[in-house]
Amino acid sequence: MKTRVLNKHPLAIRWFHWINFPVLAVMIWSGLLIYWANDVYNIKTGHTVWFHFFPKSFYDKYHISFRLAEGMSFHFAFMWLFFINGLLYLLYTFLSGEWRYLLPNKHSFKEAWLVLLHDLHIRRSAPSQLKYNAAQRVAYTAIIIMGIGSVITGLAIYKPVQFNYLSWICGGYESARIEHFILTIGYVLFFLVHIIQVIIAGWNNFQAMISGFEFIPPSTKETKNGKSVEPENIGTTKA
């Protein structure tokens, strides 16, 4: 019996994706060990503090306290893996032409809302797509820009004299530290949404990030959930 498959993710992209995951996890964990030593950030309006980064219970649960030196040693070693993996990913994405399926086009920002409405079950049909839908294009491109931002703000904190122009771009040393922190919170939020979306999208979509290909259902003229399943629109679910 024959089956049709869509070769969705090139091998290189899968390597970059799965290397980035544990490396970023180590960067966030070691970053927490560093942040603990001067944990001054919070969300407040007027004099009311709504949330302090981070509560003692959080530090206790993950054994964060009194580990600044250890955190720095991990952070300044694994930063190389994060940087090199990210750089190779960027080079590959642009040289291979894969960027055409990734970067938002002129319709993406408008369509991203339609995708969101569809995902929230407010709108029946989703806009047609190739590899990624409009919301994915916006989200995945944003996360790349955030990665570049983490390198820039990180260097501005790490070597504020040698890279004084980076500190200046970031609005100074202390601003760079806040920006570096906010980007990290952004990764955590991205991760949570990403996991939920991958679960909703289902097995066929998930396994493509490991095997590289998606199975295309046998009937191509069928209409499912108001989504037309034309060949050019197939195997291209979210997440």
């Binding site: 049709r4 070769n7 969705k8 199975f215």
Partner: peptide
């Protein structure tokens, strides 16, 4: 762009695809 994307669709024996899938997961 759509044409290029559609070139990524290929037809192959089901057991072939399944074997590739299993190998990919073992490696992973």
């Amino acid at each position: 762009m759509e044409n290029q994307w559609n070139q990524r669709i290929s037809e192959q024996p089901r057991h072939n695809a399944n074997r590739k899938l299993i190998i990919a997961f073992i490696v992973f």
